[in-house]
Design a protein around this nucleic acid. Structure first.
Lengths: 354, 354
DNA sequence: CTGTTAGCGCGTTCAT
DNA sequence: ATGAACGCGCTAACAG
């Protein structure tokens, strides 16, 4: 910057003024400065700006994994909103490990980020009570924090699951299983709770949680559930990963769907409508969840709000009824959305992104 | 930091020394400093450190989209390697727009990132010749740059496609179509070239490029290709997106696979082995591609190398023969990998991640 | 072993 | 309308 000032024959301050366009600078000198900037390929140092201004125009995003399409789509949405606000995103993955999350949030604070969007890994979040975080805007996604100060964007996991399980019950199923992965996860607990409620309300006993951390585990679980004296007749998969494992297991075991067992699941797959049979699922508005979280964050940043009670946004779910539940014989990829908790939506896989 | 120094009764410099562990500090004073740090919850300002040290311990990652599993997995790999090196990642999406990419790379330079991993959007990359970028380490992924100074990690797209098309030819198909999305993309061009080569080598004429930007376009293309005097008997889909669109189209049109048409595609889907029929695909080592790119970048950063000719790593592809090509009757999800250009790999969807 | 001085690049404050 | 001085928080270089 000093070079630019020298070349333009002005003081550094004038250069700064030209860049920010703030104060009054005569057109003549402004031109000279602009030319000097071009000539020297001058690039303002954002690090120095941030140091001076005490805000970095950067937010942090922490998600468990990036190869899960749910998390990736959320991250994409947040990134898009951030770009619109002229902010950069520092993205890290926690790998679902509390330790890593803690270490990374700490690093982000030291980098003086203006705010954070987190999908919290399971574990005690009391570390966020440290005054270190008292000046950082935090919004969570998909899972809430115990600390009520922070905003969060969620869906009604138990109601969504209940809706799907009740649909299976409507088909006459009485022995319905629940496949999940990672009981410690908030979403898994909430969805299992919804499943239990639906079963109990129907006067039935809920089956024990079927833990399916790997494709192999899923095969074992499904085999055991079907090759017994009182086999299950329907299965609910608690998220996209579980759904894939379930499909794998049913394929390996050559189980006919929905003939032998009916299925439904949480999370839509982008190929759900071309599978045989097409999958009945509870669909989350994935992109909108990320978008809403980012919007909440930027509201807090702009207004510099640090409320003692954060906002909580609950977005609607949609039951997409296809064929795996037993509703129809063979599925085509055409229009097949049906009951929904709110709103309507296209079924085309590419459209659901935005 | 001044507060810490005051509380510990020492100078700021001593605090700095304790933090970096560099010079000699007596245990007694070091203890006092440590205690003061804890007491005040002191968090070093990385912005100031970066400003001073001229390196930010941050790299930029620019990908087209995050909701494409290929890009997301690459990003995850890079992020993981960066974490191991104690680096942070600023991630942005270009949305496949050259303008956006340019603007973002520029912003990253102003943020004084130490290096960049880019999946370049189509467009002229001569802007990178500006001396602005002469001190930034750059590695590309999936697609090369015209500028030879930068490292890149690629796969042999044409050879991989040739391998798959030749497999279809081996099944006796003579009229094979090629479905792609975005002809301007490097990978699409290379894969179409491989397809043409395979066809020409077999003494056949290559079909025109079937552009499938949307599911609807794919339906139109496939319909036209099958409902004509000389219908195609096999189709090759150029990437994961195209594959999904193709599946959609075949489903809508109720085309039997591989009976009516056989198919193969570039990119493995994580549900490819549970689809009916299971999909024959050319699989990329996605995670390894991202990992390799990150490793290249950190090598350059550590050695401060700015070679006039960058390194180029080409990773092996694997033809995973399943059933959509016509190889077997009905597919199970068990072991079904087969021919490969190099190495072997498990077929389990979860495993292929790492 | 420890403190002082200086400067990384910028923007705010005050003076001209 | 423009410039000079100061400080954001930190560390390299030199004192002592």
């Amino acid at each position: 910057m000093a070079d630019v000032a020298r070349l333009a024959g002005v003081g550094k301050m004038t250069v700064s003024r030209v860049l920010s366009g703030s104060a009054n600078v005569s057109d003549a000198t402004a031109d000279r400065v602009q030319r000097a900037i071009r000539l020297l390929n001058y690039q303002p140092n954002e690090l120095a700006r941030s140091l001076r201004s005490l805000h970095s125009k950067t937010i942090a995003v922490i998600v468990p994994y990036l190869y899960d399409s749910f998390f990736a789509t959320c991250a994409h949405a947040i990134s898009t909103v951030a770009k619109q606000h002229g902010y950069s995103v520092i993205l890290t993955t926690s790998d679902e490990e509390h330790e890593t999350e803690q270490r990374q949030t700490n690093l982000m604070v030291r980098r003086r980020i203006d705010g954070m969007v987190i999908i919290p890994a399971p574990g005690d979040d009391k570390y966020l009570r440290s005054e270190i975080y008292s000046r950082v805007h935090i919004v969570t996604l998909d899972r809430p924090l115990a600390d009520p100060r922070f905003d969060s964007v969620l869906v009604n996991n138990s109601a969504g699951t209940k809706m799907a399980v009740e649909h299976l019950l409507g088909h006459g199923h009485r022995r319905i299983g629940f496949l999940g992965v990672g009981r410690e996860l908030y979403t898994m607990k909430a969805r299992y709770a919804g499943y239990r409620q639906a079963m109990m309300r129907a006067g039935l006993t809920a089956e024990p949680y079927m833990e399916c951390r790997t494709p192999e585990k899923a095969v074992d679980q499904v085999r055991a559930a079907l090759h017994c004296s009182e086999p299950l007749t329907a299965l609910f998969a608690a998220n996209n990963l579980t759904t894939r494992y379930l499909l794998h297991a049913l394929n390996v075991l050559r189980v006919e769907v929905p003939g032998k067992v009916a299925t439904a699941g949480f999370d839509d797959l982008d190929v759900a409508d071309v599978l045989q049979p097409t999958l009945t699922v509870v669909r989350q508005p994935v992109y909108q969840i990320g978008e809403a979280a980012a919007n909440l964050l930027f509201q807090r940043i702009q207004r510099q709000e640090f409320p003692s009670t954060g906002r909580r946004i609950v977005l609607p779910l949609q039951l997409v009824v296809r064929c795996s539940c037993g509703c129809r014989e063979s599925g085509t990829a055409s229009e097949d959305g049906k009951a929904s908790m709110a709103g309507r939506d296209s079924c085309a896989p590419a459209r659901s992104m935005r």
